[in-house]
């Protein structure tokens, strides 16, 4: 191994994500850096067992994982007579990074000798990827919500057309006017109309 290679000695990173899809995406992203050896926690394996198996330098942990508590204890536990115990990564001087990581739902544990300049880029990469996944999930939820609203409005209009013997344009106008008069969303007005309808049926 020449000097250049040695300076880029590989860092062993364990990705512990409860969401397999996201975990895979994060692993792939990290593997682009050839100085990293990226490992994942096999499905069904406890986080602490994976840490003991792989002996990583850095562990990126999804904070939704309930078995994260075992990592807290690693140094105090009798059985963790491990060669390289990991501890929660904390950068007191970079509160913003720590808070962003927390809000994003990811944290990092690392061996004591790991350098912040080695850990922080990994944590930032994970934060960015988690952020993308969250946005995608939010967008999906928003699309689903819009679709549900659409359905309610259509159904309310159908009832209105039946009750008032009118066409769709008139029905739409009626709901629109009512929404404007009461400063509420069209979907809310439609929902109320449907609720009143059901009550009337009962």
């Amino acid at each position: 191994m020449n000097d250049v290679d040695r300076s880029r000695a590989s860092l062993k990173v364990l990705v512990a994500d409860a969401n397999p899809k996201r975990g895979q995406a994060l692993s792939q992203t990290l593997r682009a850096d050839t100085s990293l050896e990226v490992l994942t926690v096999p499905a069904g394996m406890a986080l602490i067992d994976a840490v003991q198996l792989h002996g990583p330098d850095v562990v990126l942990v999804d904070m939704e994982r309930a078995d994260r508590d075992a990592l807290d204890s690693i140094r105090a536990l009798s059985r963790s007579a491990q060669e390289r115990p990991v501890a929660l990564f904390v950068d007191e001087d970079d509160v913003e990074l720590m808070e962003t990581a927390f809000d994003t739902g990811i944290c990092s544990y690392n061996v004591l000798e790991a350098l912040p300049q080695d850990v922080k880029p990994l944590l930032r990469t994970a934060i960015a990827l988690y952020g993308r996944f969250r946005r995608a999930r939010d967008e999906l939820a928003e699309a689903q919500r819009a679709l549900a609203e659409r359905r309610i409005i259509e159904q309310a209009k159908r009832f209105f057309m039946e009750n008032e013997k009118t066409g769709e344009v008139q029905a739409h106008r009626w709901f629109q006017r009512r929404a404007m008069q009461t400063s509420r969303k069209l979907a809310v007005v439609a929902q109320e109309y449907l609720a009143a309808q059901k009550k009337g049926d009962a």
């Binding site: 904070m63 939704e64 309930a66 994260r68 720590m98 808070e99 927390f102």
Partner: peptide, 15 residues
């Protein structure tokens, strides 16, 4: 919270 660690971190990082 899914874990005690999340509780401790939540208190530590003003969450």
């Amino acid at each position: 919270s899914p874990s005690w660690a999340n509780i401790a971190d939540g208190l530590a990082w003003n969450r």
